[in-house]
Simulated scan of single mutants.
Amino acid sequence: MASLAGKVAWVTGAGSGIGQAAAIALAKEGATVVLTGRRKEPLEETAAAIKKAGGKAVVKAADLMKAAAVGRIAKDIDKKFGRCDILVNNAGLNIPDRKWSELTSAGAEMVIDGNLSSAFYCSSAVLPMMRKRKDGVLIHTSSMAGRNPSTLSGAAYSAAKHGVVAMSHTINMEECVNGIRSCVVCPGEVATPILDKRPIPITKEERARMAQSEDVGDLIRYVACLPPHIVINEVMINPTWNRGYVGALQRAADEKKAKAGKK
């Protein structure tokens, strides 16, 4: 029997990238998956892929930056299934104008709401269902920028993803006594559509060396399948060819060469 048979998973940002990969992976383990995102068409494509593989999926399109919309979906899940065993808080976004010299209050609000506020709304909405069953796991997609502030990702994104990390740890601090577990996943560079918003375009070759959506989706599946007495509080996942590391090695080599030239 699949390890998640009979369980219900709510996956946000499920129309593409990590969310889509996670939804498909959870469905293969037997979970009934509720798919949410702003655009219905990509969600329908994810649902079709799940159903073709013999899984079960329900599409619930919504703007998760609106607390009322989140509440309606949670209420529907509770009414239809009477439970929500897994929340994958994956919805997120970024903008091209990330530097402080370019960032506007509207841009900052969008990034913070899209990455942090939406995660809070969804977490708050499922916790009552999980408390009733004394069981449940929340898995949040943060970022390496959620641990190490990054000018590449931008001020608003870094701040929001730091907030997601803190949010997840506080859930464990309070809800561990209710059998609820929270895991925050901090990926490095992943070849997802959000890269299209980068101010400096990413090449096809660079994307091929990055972590892929399926890699992170499989990690989320693993976390969701852990026994109830185990929680992975926080986990980082990166491509072996880490461009940050490679850049640091190159800078060190350049500095060594420059010093040698001065002798």
Rank of each mutant, 00 (worst) to 15 (best):
N94M: 15
N94K: 12
N94L: 13
I95L: 11
D97P: 03
S101C: 06
E102D: 09
L103E: 00
T104H: 01
G107F: 10
G107T: 00
V111Y: 02
V111F: 06
D113F: 05
N115Y: 02
S117L: 11
A119L: 06
C122P: 01
S123F: 11
A125V: 06
A125H: 10
V126D: 01
L127V: 14
P128H: 09
M129L: 15
K132A: 15
R133W: 05
R133N: 13
R133C: 12
R133G: 09
D135I: 09
H140F: 15
S143N: 05
S143G: 09
M144C: 10
A145G: 09
G146H: 09
R147M: 15
S150L: 07
G154V: 09
G154K: 04
A156G: 04
S158K: 01
K161Y: 07
H162C: 07
M167P: 02
M167H: 13
H169K: 14
N172C: 09
N172P: 02
M173P: 00
M173Y: 06
E175P: 08
V177R: 13
V177I: 14
R181C: 06
R181Q: 08
S182I: 07
V184L: 04
P187F: 02
G188V: 00
E189W: 15
A191D: 14
A191I: 04
I194M: 06
L195V: 11
K197T: 10
R198I: 07
P201W: 05
I202Y: 14
E205F: 12
E206N: 08
R207K: 15
A208R: 00
M210N: 09
M210V: 11
A211N: 13
Q212W: 03
S213D: 13
S213P: 07
S213M: 12
E214D: 14
D215I: 11
D215L: 04
V216C: 01
V216K: 02
D218V: 13
I220V: 12
Y222K: 07
Y222N: 08
Y222Q: 02
V223C: 02
